[in-house]
Design a protein around this nucleic acid. Sequence first.
DNA 1: GAGCTAAATTGACCTCGGTCAATTGCCGAA
DNA 2: TTCGGCAATTGACCGAGGTCAATTTAGCTC
Lengths: 221, 221
Amino acid sequence: MGRLPLFCDLSPQILAEITSEASVVKYARNDIIFRQGDPPTALRVVLDGQVGLTGTVSDGGETMVEILKAGEMFIAAAVLTEKPFLMSAVALQPSRILSLPGERFRRDVRERSDLSYLMLTSLSRHFRTLVREVKDLKLKSAAQRLALYLIGLTAKREGSTIVRLPHSKSVIAARVGVRPETLSRAFGHLKERGVIVEGNAVSIADIPALRAYCHEGEEII
Amino acid sequence: MGRLPLFCDLSPQILAEITSEASVVKYARNDIIFRQGDPPTALRVVLDGQVGLTGTVSDGGETMVEILKAGEMFIAAAVLTEKPFLMSAVALQPSRILSLPGERFRRDVRERSDLSYLMLTSLSRHFRTLVREVKDLKLKSAAQRLALYLIGLTAKREGSTIVRLPHSKSVIAARVGVRPETLSRAFGHLKERGVIVEGNAVSIADIPALRAYCHEGEEII
DNA sequence: GAGCTAAATTGACCTCGGTCAATTGCCGAA
DNA sequence: TTCGGCAATTGACCGAGGTCAATTTAGCTC
């Protein structure tokens, strides 16, 4: 746990205290961790695997707001406000999830200023990614959002690369905010921009060009 | 300032310290307070008036992510992370804005656990409204989002009411995430649901029915 | 390897919301 | 009062993405 980027700023001693009541649960692929509307009982941290957070309406509409990987914590806002979950969480891969009981966690946050400061900066960063999300949804096309997603998969900023898609295409479609059919077509559009798909391997011929495409017409970021 | 809901939990003494370097600036209608991409120099609080936060792309696309009224603080996340603004801020009405210099504010937050806890809960609530925003954008129609907006204007939950629109229709359109033309048509659709518009007065015949409409097909909130 | 199921792709069609243009209504200034 | 300008509405049209259905492909088990 000390290796998680989230908590590595805390001293081992504090870390031990905070996690003294924590428990670890394993989930199989497609297991539901909690449902939209449930009361938040614990802060969760992904130890291994992948977790998807999806908002749903009963007529079948569903959207994946976030995909989390190992080391990321989630639902901090729900636990802190003690309000029902706005999203459901599902294990996209076999996963181990750490639970920090809510009552205890809220007390720790209230009493330990180092922890509350840590949570604050973490939530701030997270907040900004959500703002970006809102802007992208309103202002960018499906193909641009897909390009953004692909670029997020690599750390390289120059030349070309080949990335492996870490999820099934339908999960990616939900993440990008379109139907699977539209995702296929969006990949088709990106072919003209040097993106070639083979199974779950995607080769990007010109990273800067693709970056330029998805920020097309943008003033400043 | 002590009257602001945001800070009223703090003792007057602490409040005085925190605001010791604060300044107040007046803005006329349509004045730009800061631009997307600017570095964040200060946390802002709306004392009077209204402020809109808009994300823009240079090809003309623009979307209003938030509208703030008196008592609300904004851009906390940018100030805390010291990253450039993701949005521009414009005064929608003549406004007085309080500025808390960033460097000082970050120090206060780091050193005062009561302040950092306050910021944390405030940001958590804010975070959840953004999550709702993302879900609404992906899963609801323009008319449903307009209905949500209208319902947010009244505290009543039963019977009928008449609300005054607090902004021009074009501002509301941006807020709802559509073009002004589409807003007109959305109002047209809502007419069938007992919503009648006359200038900036809107009468809602059946509040529960309208609430049901915008949460149509939703499992749990 | 055969055969089954789920995922992915492709095509035809539709709908919502955007775009462009024309018209109407409203308000302030001369 | 009349004019000018902006906000708002209305209509005609367009296009991105959704929907539905038909194939194709991939990943399985047996």
